[in-house]
Nucleic acid binder design. Structure first.
Lengths: 138, 138
DNA sequence: TTATTGACTGAGAGTAACTCTCAAGCACTA
DNA sequence: TAGTGCTTGAGAGTTACTCTCAGTCAATAA
């Protein structure tokens, strides 16, 4: 059993956020000790893990709630949950592609600045490096 | 020269967001026609591109502003801008790693549900698939 | 035994970054 | 010349936290 602080450290989610998720039904089955302190079991960590995963991939809380509630309903929702997971995977893969594109631009900028610094050159007339970027994109 | 709508479509950023960015100094040098309508040049698109890139990687607006302002100052800030780009690249790569981890969990869930559906099995006692996930992680 | 330290609590205010609504202006078209 | 469609700025609303605060409780230090 873990305290909220331990879970926050382990999962890299703030205590505030964990409380917020707990209060709003994103983490079911949290036990309490005799002093009303939350105790997270391994089972409960599973909920935290999936909520964190969905949020990281950009699923909004409303949809996360829907998924959690489907889990709680039980067997009859397996197909629906499966589809949500597939949909979420698609989103995640799109984000990967997007990140890769942004990294290309960052790489380009890195080299641009590196060259400028190495050659002690100026970019007075071209603050966004626009011409180079477009030339490269074209 | 592009209208705000054209830019919004091209760059996949909403018109609202473009106006918000423009109003707050994230997109310098936007011209206007005689009816006060914004006209985006290729040069201006460069700004949109870098703002979008930084935001997508999770850089907050305050830091984006800092970078933009450094660009506007000119040559003397090249070193500092270079460091910001390096820092941002690091963040982007971390996000990649994170996304990969989330994808592993999603893959696991996908297979779990797929098997359940194929075998018409139940997950009554294990709504978060906790045991399996931990077994795999362990 | 008292005092203080530190983790925890719920309620609710504050924040970032959009996101949306609205009334108004202008230009084209039937 | 009325309507349609696109634009404008101002400002309200939304999401998902994020932080502050006053208060409870248990354990340790004096």
């Amino acid at each position: 059993m873990y305290t909220i602080k331990e879970v926050a450290d382990m999962m890299d989610v703030s205590e505030h956020t964990l409380r917020f998720w707990a209060k709003n039904g994103f983490i079911p089955d949290i036990e309490r000790d005799r002093n009303n302190i939350r105790l997270f079991s391994e089972h409960t960590l599973g909920w935290v893990k999936i909520v964190k995963c969905l949020r990281n991939v950009g699923v909004d809380l409303k949809s996360v709630k829907k998924y959690i509630d489907l889990c709680l309903v039980g067997d009859s929702t397996i197909q629906e949950r499966y589809e949500i997971i597939l949909e979420t995977k698609k989103k995640a893969l799109e984000q990967m592609e997007d990140l890769k594109k942004q990294l290309e631009l960052l790489d380009y900028k890195e080299n641009y600045y590196k060259t400028l610094i190495a050659n002690n050159l100026m970019d007075k007339y071209n603050p966004t490096n626009e011409k180079q970027i477009l030339a490269k994109d074209a």
